[in-house]
Design a protein around this nucleic acid. Structure first.
Lengths: 233, 233
DNA sequence: CGCCGTATTGAGCGCTCTCAAGCTAGGTGG
DNA sequence: CCACCTAGCTTGAGAGCGCTCAATACGGCG
C-alpha cells in the first residue's frame, strides 16, 4: 500500500472494487484508504481473523494470501467450511446470524481490507447500481462448493482442483499453481483423510492428468480432470 | 385466496411478507394481489415450476405445499439440492447466473406466489428498511443444509429430521409431522440410498427417539436426536 | 547436518452400497 | 366388500470404497 502501482495491482480482480471509491480504481497517491475500506489488516500464517460468536461488523476482502474458515466437530476433528483467496470476500454468512459462525485463520501471510457492514449498506443505498451487484455477489456464494455433494472421493478431489485452478493465479508465465494448503486441509474440506487425498493425487498423477509435488500443482489435462470430476472415468 | 382469512393465514410465517403491501399484512378484501406478487401459481404433485437454463426472472414464495430442486448426475442418479416448504423462497441462487440451475418440481399440491425480481428490486430501492432485510434473507440461505457435511449417515439423517421439524408445521394440536417426501427423496438429498434411510429410521425408532410409519413422523426425544446429529451416541 | 512436521504407501477393517427378497398401504375393478 | 395390483418401504447378505493404524520417505529450517 506504499505506492499506487502496488495498490492497484492488489485490487485487480477483487470482487469488492466497485464498492471502493475512485482513488482505488483510477489512481491517486494511494496513501489513504477508500471510503468503504476503513482498515488494512496483515495476518501471518496461522493467525486468526475472527472466532465463532464474535459480533458481525465487517466484511473482509482478501488483497493477498488465503484463509480458511472451519469449526471443530464433536469428535475433535476440524471441518473446513470454506477457503478464501485473493479478491474474495468473507462475512456474508454472518449477516443472518449477527455473529461469525466459524473460525477464520490465515493459511499464508495475508493482507485484508476491512469493510464495516454499515459503510457497505450506506454505499449500496447511495448508489442504486450497487444494489444489483451486491445481490449478485452474495448469490454467487450460494453456488460455491456445489461439488462437495459428489459421491466419490475422486470426483470431489478432481472438482476441487478445478475450482482451485479457477480461483488461484498461476505462477508468472506458467500453468503451475502454488497450493497454500496441506493435504490435511484438503481432506478436512472434502471430508476425506489426508491419506486418501495423497493416494488420489498419486493416482491422478499416474494417469498423467496432473503433476503434483508437495505444494506445486500443474494440471496437465483439464478436460480429463473434468471427466474425473463428473465420475465418467 | 378467495377470502381474507385464507389469504392471511397463508401468509403467516412467510419470509416475504414484509415485501408485500399492506392489504396482505393488515386486511382488505384479498381479491387483488399485492404490489410485488404478480401472479399465483398452483402446481399439482410432480408438476414442474422451472427447469435448468430457464431465464431467471422471478422469486417464488411458497404459500402452501413443498418443492424440491434437483439435478441429474452423469450416472443418471437424481441429486436433490434443496427442499422448500411453506413460507420459504426459491430463486436466490439464480441471481448470480441469470438462469435457474436446477429443476424444481412440486412434492405435493402446491400454491406459489410469483415475485418478479424487477419488482423486488424496486421495492427494496423504495424502502431502505427492506435492504437490510433482503441481505438477511439471502444470507440465511448460505447457512442452510450445513449438516450435509456431517460424516456419518446417522448424523446427517438425524440433523435432517431436526431441520424438518423446524420447517414443517406439525398436524393440528400434535407433534406429528406429515412427511411430504419419500425415503428415496431423503436419500437423494442426504447422499444415501433409500435402503440406508429406511434402516436408520428403524434404528432411531428402536432407540425410542422417533416414531415413524410411512409418511408420519413423531419426534419423541428431541434432545437425544440432537446427540445423534452430533455423533455423540 | 539433524530435526520435525508433512507426505506417501501398505494392510486390514467397517460403514454404506448393491442386489435381492418380502412386506405394507392405498387404489382399482369385479 | 374383497381380491388384486403396484409403488414404496423394510430387511438381509455380501461387496467395495474410504478409514484407521502403522511404517517409511521427504523437505524445510534451525
Amino acid at each position: 500500500m506504499d505506492n499506487f502501482n502496488l495498490k492497484f495491482s492488489a485490487c485487480l480482480g477483487c470482487h469488492f472494487v466497485p464498492f471502493c471509491s475512485s482513488e482505488c480504481n483510477h489512481g491517486g497517491n494511494g496513501k489513504q484508504l477508500t471510503s468503504s475500506v476503513k482498515r488494512l489488516l496483515r495476518l501471518k500464517r496461522k493467525e486468526v481473523l475472527y472466532l465463532p460468536k464474535h459480533k458481525f461488523q465487517n466484511f473482509y476482502a482478501i488483497q493477498k494470501g488465503a484463509l480458511k474458515t472451519y469449526q471443530m466437530e464433536a469428535n475433535g476433528k476440524e471441518l473446513i467450511r470454506a477457503f478464501y483467496f485473493a479478491g474474495e470476500i468473507l462475512g456474508y454468512k454472518a449477516i443472518a446470524t449477527g455473529h461469525y459462525l466459524f473460525s477464520a485463520t490465515a493459511l499464508t501471510d495475508t493482507v485484508i481490507c476491512e469493510i464495516p457492514y454499515d459503510e457497505f449498506l450506506k454505499q449500496v443505498h447511495a448508489e442504486p447500481e450497487l444494489l444489483k451487484l451486491s445481490f449478485h455477489l452474495i448469490s454467487k456464494q450460494l453456488n460455491s462448493g456445489a461439488y462437495l455433494a459428489a459421491s466419490t472421493a475422486e470426483q470431489r478431489l478432481a472438482a476441487f482442483l478445478i475450482d482451485l485452478s479457477r480461483r488461484l493465479r498461476p505462477a508468472a508465465n506458467s500453468d503451475v499453481y502454488h497450493l497454500p494448503l496441506s493435504r490435511q486441509d484438503m481432506g478436512n474440506y472434502l471430508r476425506l483423510t489426508a491419506e486418501t487425498i495423497s493416494r488420489l493425487l498419486s493416482k491422478l498423477q499416474k494417469a498423467r492428468v496432473i503433476a503434483v509435488t508437495q505444494k506445486r500443482l500443474q494440471i496437465l489435462e483439464p478436460e480429463k480432470l473434468e471427466l474425473f470430476a463428473e465420475g465418467l472415468v
